[in-house]
């Protein structure tokens, strides 16, 4: 048996990639530049695709390859490209202005990861070993991605950066899905992907409109809209 056929090795690689995904998420929290954020998101999505295909390879679950390919294509390439063009088109400033300053946000992200571990522990109390258990241990990371993504959405002012946060939150859901059930039924998964795509399209248009109308992307200005 070559080392790449050893489930032990697959386990190692998945753990490592999951850790990198988490680090990228925290990097997105700490980075002020929008373009770097988009790039980090793209890399994160590619890593998730890798995790999915690793699980697919060791479990011989071909439908996961499709999910991985979709992940890679849509969230790794297409969406980042759309967002990049949007950034270029509306010529926004480079800097993200969070409500909570960077060191504190980073530390909050760390705490959220800890929380993710605490809430996911009961689900992992009966560890499944061998090939079937592959990727199970990434559940805390998935929940962590979700929580940090949510925190990012709250913490950011500009609509565009909120879209990014939403997308990374959705990455968390994807990881949770593949780590718990080796992917949801294909239809649901496809639905989610197209949902996300459409959502981003709409949001992109909205961002553009908000900017046109208010001459700013700061969504706190939307509070003017209330009666």
């Amino acid at each position: 048996m070559f080392f790449w056929q050893d489930p032990q090795f697959g386990d190692r690689m998945i753990t490592l990639m999951a850790a990198l995904v988490l680090v990228l998420q925290i990097m997105m929290v700490s980075q002020r530049r929008v373009v770097t954020n988009i790039r980090a998101f793209a890399v994160q999505s590619c890593l998730l695709a890798c995790i999915a295909s690793t699980i697919a390879y060791f479990n011989r679950a071909p439908h996961l390859y499709i999910a991985a390919a979709l992940m890679l294509g849509l969230k790794g390439i297409v969406l980042p490209e759309i967002l990049r063009r949007l950034v270029a088109r509306i010529g926004i400033r480079q800097e993200i202005e969070p409500f909570v300053n960077v060191p504190v946000s980073v530390i909050i992200s760390g705490l959220l990861t800890l929380l993710a571990y605490v809430v996911s522990e009961p689900l992992q109390s009966s560890p499944v070993t061998g090939v079937a258990g592959l990727g199970r241990n990434t559940l805390p990371v998935a929940i962590g991605l979700f929580l940090i993504g949510f925190f990012m959405m709250i913490n950011r002012r500009k609509a565009l950066t909120q879209v990014l946060a939403l997308l990374s939150l959705e990455n968390g859901l994807f990881l949770a899905a593949i780590s718990l059930t080796y992917g949801m039924p294909m239809v649901v998964e496809l639905g989610i992907f197209f949902d996300v795509l459409v959502a981003v399209m709409i949001l992109a248009i909205l961002v553009y409109r908000i900017r046109e109308t208010f001459d700013s992307m700061d969504i706190s200005r939307l509070s003017r809209l209330k009666g």
Binding site: I26, M27, S30, V102, P103, V104, V106, I107, S109, G110
Partner: peptide, 8 residues
């Protein structure tokens, strides 16, 4: 900020 990242 850099060192906060290191800490986390």
């Amino acid at each position: 900020e850099l060192l906060a990242v290191a800490f986390v």
